[in-house]
């Protein structure tokens, strides 16, 4: 699945936060081509902050983020657009445009960034919808389909321009276990068959063990990465108790009721 050593995202000494508040302090990691990389951590540790910095929504305070060799923090104008065209993002809520049908949602980037004729755009958009198993819903509005379907449509939209990297913000949030498992299978299928690199923020343990090739574990106190590697190995062998507890779903007082 993953081609080791060939990195596609490099983060070096990234410091990020909001104003005076620093949330991530000098963190560094690499994401390799074709792998499913999961960002983990307790609530408020900066998972979403990291994701939003990776996709260039927020300005970094120091350090650098290279997306496929290009520094997203310093890119502007057309260069930035070129980077955006190589990545796809699925937001937590789906963020489909409510005034457009699913097909139109996916056709929009194709319409703006390519010169493909209409029938070709329509066909490619329909292909992407079929890939996420939404055939027959092309002309539905986002409000007319379920939450799980909206997420799948959002993945299809993220893949409209065949990006090399797709970022997923909590793909299984608010979904039932079956839909969530289906989404995991879809992500695995896409990674294996289309060679897309996925960067995923999620809390779902089942998801993590199913899809993740590698995880990083962010920590609120140290504002850095406290663990990195294969989740199955971390579950058993991590030196840090909190990480083992997280993977083994141990709560306060060892998960037993407080007397």
């Amino acid at each position: 699945m993953s081609c080791e050593n060939e990195s596609i995202i490099n983060v070096r000494d990234l410091t990020a936060g909001y104003g005076e508040v620093i949330i991530l302090d000098k963190i560094s990691f690499d994401v390799y081509k074709g792998e499913i990389f999961v960002i983990l951590g307790g609530s408020g540790c900066g998972k979403s902050t990291l994701l939003k910095h990776l996709i260039g929504l927020y300005k970094i305070q120091s350090g650098e983020i290279l997306i496929d060799g290009k520094n997203i923090a310093q890119a502007q104008g057309e260069e930035l657009t070129a980077i955006f065209n190589r990545i796809g993002v699925m937001y937590q809520s789906g963020a489909l445009f409510g005034s457009m049908t699913l097909l139109e949602n996916i056709m929009l980037p194709l319409e703006e960034f390519t010169q493909l004729p209409r029938e070709a755009r329509e066909m490619i958009a329909a292909m992407k919808l079929k890939l996420v198993n939404l055939q027959g819903f092309e002309h539905f509005m986002p409000s007319e389909i379920s939450g799980g379907m909206q997420k799948r449509a959002a993945i299809a939209r993220a893949m409209a321009l065949d990006p090399k990297i797709v970022f997923l913000d909590e793909p299984s949030a608010g979904l039932d276990p079956i839909t969530s498992a289906e989404l995991d299978q879809l992500i695995l299928h896409l990674a294996q068959n289309l060679g897309i690199t996925f960067v995923v923020v999620t809390h779902e343990l089942d998801s993590i063990f199913t899809i993740a090739d590698r995880v990083i574990f962010l920590d609120k106190k140290t504002k850095g990465i406290i663990a990195e590697g294969d989740p199955k190995e971390l579950k058993e062998k991590s030196k840090i108790e909190f990480v083992r507890e997280f993977f083994n779903r141990v709560g306060v007082n060892g998960g037993k009721p407080v007397q």
């Binding site: 066909m123 490619i124 329909a126 292909m127 079929k130 890939l131 055939q135 092309e138 002309h139 289309l194």
Partner: peptide
């Protein structure tokens, strides 16, 4: 193969 296994045509 991935896409053609999904169906013969994508015309709507």
């Amino acid at each position: 193969d991935t896409f053609s296994s999904l169906g013969k045509t994508f015309h709507l």
